[in-house]
């Protein structure tokens, strides 16, 4: 039982990271109907930005408090990732809007390769480790929870609440949802659609950057290929939860995190990805639009 709960905690931690990345996929898909394949690399880039800030901080101000370091890492990573994602949308996706559907998809794959190669060239191809930042561990009723895990889960919960609030309760969120549902009508009501789409890319990138920072803190290492596997997992999470649905992305992320850690704990770790994707396949057979995806019932 304790072992099971332990795995649950591990799964939730991993799932939180996937969920935060998945939000970016799902929001962009929702608003312009394209999969931003470069989003995983934006996450990786966030990790690298955090790494560089960490190295700079620790060498310039030895003994800087961890909380401050983490905060600065997160903020700089968010800014860098947002700038990149904004630029990509501006130069590579926007000109293709309204052309045939596969064009932006192919461009997105190109952007993904370009970003990871850029990091490979500028930062080197090897794993970049950092010393453990947060090492406290608590023992609660036989279950070991590290402070890292608590941080990740709490930060995810807070950020998701903020996101939910923005999307459902602010004029910006209303403009985003309107743009998603009928772009032309949104423009007729005075919504600057291009700007709204840009903001969506920025928001998605900011969350991915936080995920990247958390990933670096959790595993203590980042490498230029890290955009790929976590990116694909997060994309899977978005599809599993129902692409276009915010709560779906979080749910999908948590589910995939849980499946992975429980499978690795009770079966063989080699097949954890097979398990994940099998479950995705099974869910999609019975619910083609994902767990919380909307079945199209509206009259339009």
């Amino acid at each position: 039982m304790e072992y099971f709960v332990q795995q649950l905690v591990n799964g939730l931690t991993l799932g939180s990271i996937y969920g935060m990345i998945a939000i970016g996929y799902t929001m962009v898909y929702g608003i312009i109907g394209m999969i931003n394949f470069a989003h995983g690399d934006i996450f990786m880039l966030g990790g690298f930005a955090a790494l560089i800030v960490f190295l700079a901080l620790t060498s310039l101000f030895a003994g800087v408090p961890v909380v401050i370091a983490l905060l600065v890492m997160m903020i700089v990573a968010m800014i860098m990732a947002s700038l990149w994602n904004w630029t990509i949308e501006r130069v590579a996706y926007r000109p293709l809007r309204g052309s045939f559907r596969l064009a932006p998809l192919i461009t997105a794959i190109g952007m993904s390769i370009a970003l990871s190669n850029f990091i490979q060239v500028t930062q080197g191809p090897r794993n970049k480790p950092i010393p453990p930042m947060v090492s406290s561990v608590y023992n609660i009723a036989g279950i070991t929870i590290s402070l890292k895990q608590i941080l990740i889960i709490v930060i995810t919960a807070v950020l998701l609440s903020v996101f939910w609030y923005i999307v459902h309760r602010t004029p910006l969120g209303r403009a985003q949802r309107a743009t998603e549902q009928d772009r032309k009508m949104a423009a007729l009501l005075g919504i600057d659609v291009d700007r709204t789409i840009s903001v969506t890319f920025i928001m998605g990138a900011a969350l991915a950057a936080v995920a990247g920072t958390m990933y670096l803190m959790y595993y203590g290492v980042v490498v230029f290929t890290d955009g790929f596997i976590p990116g694909v997992k997060a994309f899977t999470a978005a599809v599993l939860g129902g692409i276009g649905s915010l709560p779906g992305a979080v749910l999908g992320g948590l589910l995939i995190g849980l499946i992975e850690s429980l499978w690795s704990a009770y079966f063989t770790i080699d097949y954890k990805d097979v398990a994940t994707f099998s479950i995705l396949a099974i869910v999609l057979i019975f619910k083609p639009s994902g767990i919380l995806g909307r079945p199209e019932v509206e009259k339009v």
């Binding site: 209303r174 949802r177 309107a178 549902q181 009928d182 032309k184 009508m185 007729l188 009501l189 909307r294 509206e298 009259k299 339009v300």
Partner: peptide, 13 residues
């Protein structure tokens, strides 16, 4: 302001 052809109500709002 326009009430366009087809009404274009935001369906999920």
């Amino acid at each position: 302001a326009q009430s366009p052809e087809g009404r274009r109500i935001f369906p999920r709002m």
